[in-house]
Design a protein around this nucleic acid. Structure first.
Lengths: 213, 213
DNA sequence: GTCTATATTGAGATAGAC
DNA sequence: GTCTATCTCAATATAGAC
């Protein structure tokens, strides 16, 4: 047992590099990029500062790496959805559900993305969040347009319909951040989307102008 | 002209205190609470550090004051809306429009609120944003419930309907933050709300279960 | 690869003159 | 009320031993 140069002894649980990514994500999400310090990160990972600088070169380095990883996963989910079959409602429900699952899985990274995209950059280096948002918008828009073409959806402004659906996604996501005790979650998302599909008003006879604009 | 003790000479443009509030709001919104420094704030207001500490005691002090001011304005708008008359759709459109106007007017404070409510606190002192959010939720919910009672809206989960409407508000607000060039604005908000009232799907004959659940 | 110890910078806050 | 000058603390980052 003795004698062999210690080499497989070093990583106590997971790889040190991996542990750093995990705790950095958690701390950036909870305290913000600027406020979470490298001291805290290395302390939480059970190592010392130079280890972080050895693996990631800088605070910005570890931030960019954890962002890129999460973005990759998101791209995979969205791109898988564009080959789905079924009606427009069904496909939209499925896409939103899949995206929401990823959001719940990667809740820390999403919080961080969210706060930097909609809030001040907090001194964090640039990351192209618009690309993430645009990717989601366009995949929803595409399904909406197919729904209109197949006469499942009313004729009208497909962008507005996409915004309404994204609004449901966002409100559910924001509740997952700030009021998880409400437990809207997957069920709430489905109910709200169905509400948007059907409308909340009782339809009167005054409809005659079609759905344009 | 001379001889009189300089007293009305001191404020060059507006009151110094007021100028500090304005530039602090702008800087907190753009750079975040933690990142915006007291150095920058006083420099932008054309004064020196001790002036800020003289009027507001601390960085936290000026932050809390500007938040409280904006919250007061918001409360006024929402409370004015609960005495409005008209149909549920009309009242919801009006309330959302009024709130959106205030958001545009106070865009800097709203950005700051938003980023601290949904993001990490950035070291900022506690402020009860939930009270703001709850106030808006409940005034919408009240109108929705009246709509259901008066048979203008379908029977169903009034909370879900409120979330759908809030989703529209949020998505419009978020676009005002990040993509003002899209100019969704007031018109977009009205279009999306109408979409939610009417629904985006073409109604088929399969409806028989009412709106319960 | 990982440590201890330290360099360096810039933040919030204040003392004391005017 | 407003200034100049300064205190104190904590952050990122690194040098150099092991």
């Amino acid at each position: 047992m003795v004698g062999r140069k210690a080499k497989r002894d070093i990583p106590p649980e997971r790889d040190v590099r991996e542990r750093l990514i995990v705790v950095a994500t958690e701390l950036f999400a909870r305290k913000g990029y600027a406020t979470a310090t490298t001291r805290e990160i290395v302390a939480a990972a059970g190592v010392t500062k130079p280890v972080l600088y050895y693996y990631f070169r800088s605070k910005e380095g570890i931030y960019l790496e954890l962002m890129q990883r999460a973005f990759k996963r998101f791209e995979d989910v969205v791109e898988a959805s564009i080959t789905e079959s079924g009606g427009a409602e069904e496909r939209l429900l499925h896409l939103c559900d899949q995206v929401f699952s990823l959001i719940v899985e990667k809740i820390d990274v999403v919080r961080l993305m969210y706060s930097i995209y909609y809030g001040p950059p907090q001194g964090a280096p640039f990351f192209d969040f618009d690309a993430v948002h645009l990717k989601l918008f366009e995949s929803i828009l595409q399904i909406v347009n197919e729904g209109i073409r197949k006469k499942e959806f009313r004729r009208g402004n497909a962008d507005d319909m996409t915004w309404a659906i994204l609004g449901a996604m966002h409100i559910i996501m924001e509740n997952e951040f700030c009021h998880p005790e409400l437990e809207l979650g997957h069920g709430g998302l489905e109910r709200i989307l169905n509400l948007i599909f059907r409308g909340i008003s009782i339809q009167t006879a005054r409809r005659g102008k079609g759905g344009k604009r």
